[in-house]
Amino acid sequence: MKLLLAPMEGLLDFVLRDVLTRVGGADRCVSEFIRITGTVLPDKVFLRTMPELRNGSRTLAGVPVRAQLLGSDPESLAVNAANLARLGPEGIDLNFGCPAKVVNRHGGGAALLQDPEHIARVVEAVRRAVPAHLPVSAKMRLGFNDTGLMRECAQAMAQGGACEIVVHARTKLDGYRPPAYWELIPAIRAAVAVPVIANGEIWSVDDALRCRAQSGCGDLMLGRGIVADPGLALAIRAAVDGGAATPLEVRWPDLLPQIARFWEMVCEDLEPRQRAGRLKQWLNLLRRRYPEAETAFQEVRVQTDQREITQWVENLPHRWG
């Protein structure tokens, strides 16, 4: 079983990739999308989104990171993919799933799910542009407004040269509203000869087991669920290997050093105006899994001063350690 960390714009960035892979259980990460338009991006753009390129395309915990590109022009994507390949990414992933209006309005992300032939041209162009040893994968949703073209889209990706396909089991129209339609993924698996990985609405071990059963996929991609419960990948792995759901693998006191590490990296690498918000964003999600996170979130919710927040973080082990 492979467990992957999802690319999530504005949430699962290199800071959280570092922290979550330190906790353990994930086999590979995918970066947030790097948007490709009509220009050749300089190296600094790739490095800003994916600083792991400076570390052999791995997090500091040693987990590989694949770079994700988003765009609609085959030639521009190919040129930029070749440029990115010089920096030594673990692989290149292509985004056919982003539901954001600003992205779809320019023909990128999930908008391409309306045109399987265009998808094939995009994947083929990138596959030809990068070295043969470099994996090229794709991430898709079940469709744009409906699921009518989901098989054709997956086939276009596979025929274009994608070595694996992650399926977020919702349409663009569904957005992030539950449920995820895992039961539709077997039709995609039957339509292609490459591995298919299931994604969407996996918040718990029970969700993961049901997703595997309904989708027929042995491998899963985790997004908001593992941000809310950093021990989720470890717990899923224990449940699958042991044959039964196991208790929480990462307790709140175990997580405190990771929260401190997260805040340290945020202060080192992000703009001052972003720092407090990023900590609050993570604590807000952690409230789903940890009762202690509710208290922590309420305490830090109105704080904006970096020095005060730093003191608050440093005091966490004395309260809950």
Rank of each mutant, 00 (worst) to 15 (best):
R66D: 13
V40I: 15
T59L: 05
R287D: 15
N55T: 00
L142P: 08
P99E: 08
G71A: 07
F297P: 05
R301P: 00
R22W: 15
L113H: 08
S31M: 08
T295A: 15
F14R: 13
G143W: 13
R151E: 14
V79Q: 13
W203T: 03
R54V: 06
Q258I: 01
R287K: 15
A156L: 07
S76H: 10
S72R: 08
E164F: 12
A245E: 04
S137C: 11
N104A: 11
L94G: 01
V103W: 04
M265K: 09
G56D: 00
G91S: 11
A244H: 15
L184H: 10
N315K: 12
E264M: 01
N315M: 15
R319L: 15
L232A: 11
N199T: 13
A82M: 04
L286H: 04
V227I: 14
P178Y: 09
P131D: 12
A260I: 05
P253E: 04
A154S: 04
A235H: 05
G175K: 02
E152Y: 02
C98H: 12
R278N: 00
Y290R: 08
N104W: 08
L256R: 02
G223T: 10
V19H: 07
E124G: 09
A110T: 02
T59R: 04
L283M: 15
G62W: 09
P89G: 14
T171M: 02
F144S: 01
G56H: 11
A235F: 06
Q274S: 13
